[in-house]
Write a protein that binds this DNA or RNA. Sequence first.
DNA 1: CGTACGATTGAGGTCAATCAATCACAGTGG
DNA 2: CCACTGTGATTGATTGACCTCAATCGTACG
Lengths: 231, 231
Amino acid sequence: MLFPACPLLALGLEFDALATFDAILQRPRPLKRGQALMRQGEPFESLFVVRSGSFKQTVAEPGRRDQVTHFYLPGEVVGLDDIGEASCFGNVVALESAFVCELPFPHLEGLVEGLPALRGELYRCLSREMRRDQRMLCLLSGRTADQRLASFLLGLSERFRSRGCSPYRFHLSMSRSDIASYLGLVLETVSRTLARFQQQGMLSVSGRELAIHDHEALGAVALASAPMMTA
Amino acid sequence: MLFPACPLLALGLEFDALATFDAILQRPRPLKRGQALMRQGEPFESLFVVRSGSFKQTVAEPGRRDQVTHFYLPGEVVGLDDIGEASCFGNVVALESAFVCELPFPHLEGLVEGLPALRGELYRCLSREMRRDQRMLCLLSGRTADQRLASFLLGLSERFRSRGCSPYRFHLSMSRSDIASYLGLVLETVSRTLARFQQQGMLSVSGRELAIHDHEALGAVALASAPMMTA
DNA sequence: CGTACGATTGAGGTCAATCAATCACAGTGG
DNA sequence: CCACTGTGATTGATTGACCTCAATCGTACG
């Protein structure tokens, strides 16, 4: 099995279905840091499964600096938000050297036709994506910088854990500025908040290396019965 | 044709396909103001097409006041974010007397099997939903109250226009508090901002009746090359 | 070794949340 | 018909979180 971590393969595919599925996956393609995988407005043709490395999705809006809308880690699927559309919603750029597998969408759609299990899996991917966005929406709405950053780090931690990496020590492949854009803050605030978290002993950061010391406390900050807009 | 405004029917269905489609749509069901159409955590079984009236989706989070994540107008589909999941993501509550048609998902899935046009339409609905969320994400991220409210009103205006209602005069079926929650503000700010917009001659509000006078100016506010986090 | 870029740290200003009072309106009951 | 009550909306004053501007620092890379 080529892609043990790929959500599209999580459950239920028969052995021969798997073989058919593998057949339409193109062989891994390498990208260098800064290279674009998709460009905003270009025609949508394929999904991509991240094999290694990581990516950010950004959308450009008239009169504003680019906004980071997603980070993609290995095993995650890029392009789900373009299904059913003619063109790509945003730019997807490699944050470091990376490999991706291309998954031409028309092929996938054809395959889905005869494989209810795969269709279910595709739906599940789509809905997971939607719920992720909705959670993000809640996170950006009236949360303090502390809560946003704590949630972000715990989210990353969880994603690393679920793919077998340490949830306590990991590398931030994105810049402070990327994180800030993603969280709707400015980079100075990210920097300051990280410093404070470190000072409080919840974690330590050195450049882009992060170690979470007090997962518990971080969770408490994230959920904090907000100082802001208290119910 | 029963539902001219339903996005699932926008394009390309053959006549007999339409007939099959109608067959699985349950007859319209009435709801009174405040009644729940879906409840957070309950098993997901059906999509609903809003025939008349309007709804809000809210999600409850531990230690926080409910957060409004969506408003649904006639012709829109409720429950898309639950496809592929076992249970409902949020509560959906009627903002006024309303009618909905139930669309049992297993039936729809079966129907989609043999109808590529319908499947395409379903994908389009899903991706439209995702992009809406992403736009919302951008809106909540580092925009001023003015920009959020202006965008919100223009968005509503556009939705009314696209279903044949006046884009310049319409009724806000949601409370200031709902709007505030949706935009990540407090109700006082919504109230003040509306008052200021009115004072500047861009619109007039009286209770929940809204009239947009200067669509242009409102657009300028929404896109304003932000005073905040200027590029 | 010097340049560049990302990150940190500091000082000051501003927008929106908070707290609080008042108002408008609808429904209820005397 | 008119208090009474409750909910939603408005308006004001204050405060605090976060943005802005600016300087410095560190690390990577040519």
